[in-house]
Amino acid sequence: MQSLNELIEMAVGNGSRNEFCRRAGISAGNFSRILKGQKASPEILRKIAAASATVSYSQLMQAAGYVEDQAGAQAEIQAIPVYGSIAAGSPIEAEENFSGYIRLEYAQKHFGADCFALKVVGDSMDLANMPDGSTVIVKRQSEVRDGEIGAVMIAGQATVKRIYHQGEHLVLAPVSKSALYGPQVYSGEDEVRILGKVVLALVDII
Score class of each variant (00 low, 15 high):
residue 69 D to H: 02
residue 42 P to S: 03
residue 48 I to D: 03
residue 68 E to W: 00
residue 52 S to I: 03
residue 67 V to I: 15
residue 42 P to G: 00
residue 45 L to W: 01
residue 62 Q to R: 12
residue 25 G to V: 09
residue 80 I to C: 12
residue 43 E to P: 06
residue 56 S to W: 04
residue 45 L to M: 03
residue 23 R to Y: 06
residue 46 R to T: 07
residue 39 K to R: 15
residue 49 A to C: 07
residue 42 P to I: 02
residue 41 S to A: 08
residue 77 I to Y: 15
residue 52 S to Y: 05
residue 40 A to R: 04
residue 42 P to W: 00
residue 71 A to V: 09
residue 42 P to A: 05
residue 75 A to G: 10
residue 27 S to W: 13
residue 37 G to M: 11
residue 33 R to W: 12
residue 24 A to I: 11
residue 36 K to E: 14
residue 47 K to S: 07
residue 42 P to Q: 00
residue 76 E to L: 14
residue 37 G to W: 11
residue 65 G to D: 03
residue 54 T to K: 14
residue 79 A to W: 09
residue 33 R to Y: 14
residue 40 A to C: 06
residue 34 I to P: 05
residue 53 A to K: 00
residue 75 A to N: 09
residue 17 R to I: 15
residue 76 E to F: 05
residue 25 G to L: 12
residue 65 G to K: 03
residue 47 K to V: 08
residue 67 V to G: 04
residue 44 I to P: 04
residue 15 G to T: 12
residue 29 G to H: 07
residue 25 G to C: 09
residue 21 C to W: 07
residue 42 P to R: 02
residue 57 Y to M: 00
residue 21 C to G: 13
residue 51 A to Q: 01
residue 59 Q to F: 09
residue 70 Q to Y: 10
residue 44 I to Q: 00
residue 35 L to F: 08
residue 64 A to T: 02
residue 72 G to Q: 08
residue 37 G to N: 13
residue 19 E to K: 15
residue 35 L to Q: 11
residue 17 R to G: 06
residue 71 A to C: 01
residue 46 R to W: 03
residue 49 A to L: 04
residue 19 E to S: 15
residue 17 R to D: 03
residue 77 I to L: 15
residue 65 G to Q: 01
residue 50 A to K: 12
residue 23 R to S: 10
residue 44 I to H: 07
residue 62 Q to K: 10
residue 16 S to I: 10
residue 22 R to E: 11
residue 24 A to P: 09
residue 53 A to L: 01
residue 62 Q to T: 11
residue 42 P to Y: 00
residue 53 A to W: 02
residue 25 G to A: 11
residue 25 G to I: 14
residue 74 Q to P: 02
residue 80 I to Q: 10
residue 34 I to F: 12
residue 64 A to K: 03
residue 17 R to V: 14
residue 36 K to M: 14
residue 25 G to P: 13
residue 61 M to K: 10
residue 54 T to Y: 01
residue 43 E to L: 14
